[in-house]
Design a protein around this nucleic acid. Structure first.
Lengths: 122, 122
DNA sequence: TACACTGTACAGCTTTCATCCATGGTATCT
DNA sequence: AGATACCATGGATGAAAGCTGTACAGTGTA
């Protein structure tokens, strides 16, 4: 599992700050799509720069598709999950499941929506 | 998903260098147990310091149990997967599965053991 | 004395992330 | 009319975290 290994890359990927968060936000959007500014609003604390960077990475890796609507006046960008991106969500599900099973201090998530967590409805 | 979130922590965790590797090595060991020196031998490139650090982390997180055999001559330490650690392997499986499905340049892993990869037999 | 096993200590590099700032046309408030 | 704020980016800088490399220490057997 050196750096050329896709499994390693995927693991590295999911561990980066904001990545999972962005994917989950897209997942929750209508037809799994969100605009840049929507994402910014819904992910508190992320800097615009980070958001662009992560989106570019996700696009490069094929998890996210970007669409630019240039017909309108301030040009608007939309990002949506590809099939591969949608499938990636299930990794997060398994992760959450593991956490719920073994991290007992995490009961909150099981019984109620903790409200802060974008993985609530997984 | 701030830093207090277990899902986030688990994601962060799996993305760290060597962590998955160590877990897989333990998984492949007899009764999912390996000695410190065995791990060092089987994970090329890892420094002793990193190995200790990761093992301590894994122990703290409850994925790994350490046993010291002090009856013998040079004291021997064994590390084994706990139930929680064993269960964590399935996250790696899902990860691998995703990679095999979507990262087409990764066909090698599907058709044969790449030999270098400790996730071969998952 | 030499070796086997399980580590620790120090010094430096690399990567990651945040913070601040600039863009430039549009739209809304005063 | 003038000021201010939105939209989606991208550069420069620097701090902090992560990781590497190498050396070496403790503790007991032969």
């Amino acid at each position: 599992m050196d750096e050329s290994c896709t499994v390693y890359q995927a693991a590295d990927f999911i561990g980066r700050r904001w990545t999972a968060l962005i994917l989950l936000e897209l997942y929750k959007g209508e037809s799994m799509t969100r605009r840049y500014s929507e994402l910014k609003k819904r992910i508190p604390g992320i800097t615009p720069k980070m958001l662009s960077m992560r989106l570019r990475e996700l696009e490069r890796e094929g998890l996210v598709k970007k669409t630019v609507d240039a017909s309108e006046f301030p040009v608007k960008s939309s990002y949506s999950l590809t099939k591969s991106g949608k499938d990636f969500i299930k990794i997060i599900k398994v992760l959450k499941n593991w956490a719920l099973t073994w991290k007992l201090d995490n009961k909150l998530c099981k019984n109620a929506e903790c409200g802060k967590c974008p993985a609530d409805n997984l």
